[in-house]
Amino acid sequence: MRSDRAIAGVILAGGRATRMGGGDKCLLEIGGKPLLEEIIARLSPQVAALALNANGDPARFARFGLPVVPDADDARDGPLAGVLAGMDWAASEGFAQIVTVAGDTPFFPTHLVQALRFAAVSEGTPLARAETPRPGSDRFDRHPTFGLWQVGLRDDLRAALAAGTRKVVAWTDPHGCARVSFDGEDDPFFNVNTPDDLEKARAR
């Protein structure tokens, strides 16, 4: 029986990477190693177990030693499909919660899981998401793929996907979702979407 405090991590890498010309963004190299290696190193100390959500042949990720969980029927219905795949894997492993991170975002906070869990417990919500203050504004940028999710909501999420829900916040917010602000001089949720982004990440 897992402790209620045990949280699993899921790296979401199931997208098509169209702005990078296709392929797996998480296998692009920065600092002489794949993005995925940096993400694993940053997330694994924060969680009790770790899996990768990716579609297609899992053999291409064999060197990383992670279980690879695809979207149901390789549907590729956006990040919520990856979250559901992660929830189903976590449920089979006995976890009650997961924290997800994006597979193209190598600089996320090293206290991400702790902060998300603290916010969810403090506010009594089953979900929590990351955000950052927008410079020169009182508004915040949302980073909903960086979130904490109660695995017990997976059937609700499955039904929502079947009904056509694709936008993350359209599903999370009605359930109650704590918001956690992460400050930083450099954007901690900078993600690699284009070749120019990749060069910026390499410079960092």
Rank of each mutant, 00 (worst) to 15 (best):
G9L: 05
H143N: 13
P58M: 00
A120R: 02
E123Q: 15
R179I: 00
V192S: 04
R166A: 13
L112S: 11
L112T: 14
G136V: 02
P67M: 02
Q150Y: 06
R204P: 08
L148V: 05
L12C: 06
A203Y: 08
R5G: 00
A163P: 04
G65L: 06
D104H: 10
R166P: 08
R204G: 11
I39D: 14
R60P: 02
Q150F: 02
P45I: 00
A160S: 12
P70I: 00
P58F: 01
C26M: 14
P67W: 11
A90M: 04
V151M: 03
V168Y: 07
K167Y: 15
R204Y: 09
R19W: 07
A178E: 11
G164W: 15
V68H: 15
G9H: 04
L66M: 12
G23H: 03
R42V: 02
A91K: 09
A90C: 10
A54C: 10
E199A: 04
H175I: 00
R179K: 13
V99S: 14
P133I: 11
A62H: 08
E38R: 04
K25E: 09
D77F: 01
V121P: 00
T165M: 09
E29G: 01
V113H: 12
G164K: 06
P106Y: 05
D197Q: 03
K200L: 08
V69H: 02
N193V: 02
R63W: 03
T110C: 01
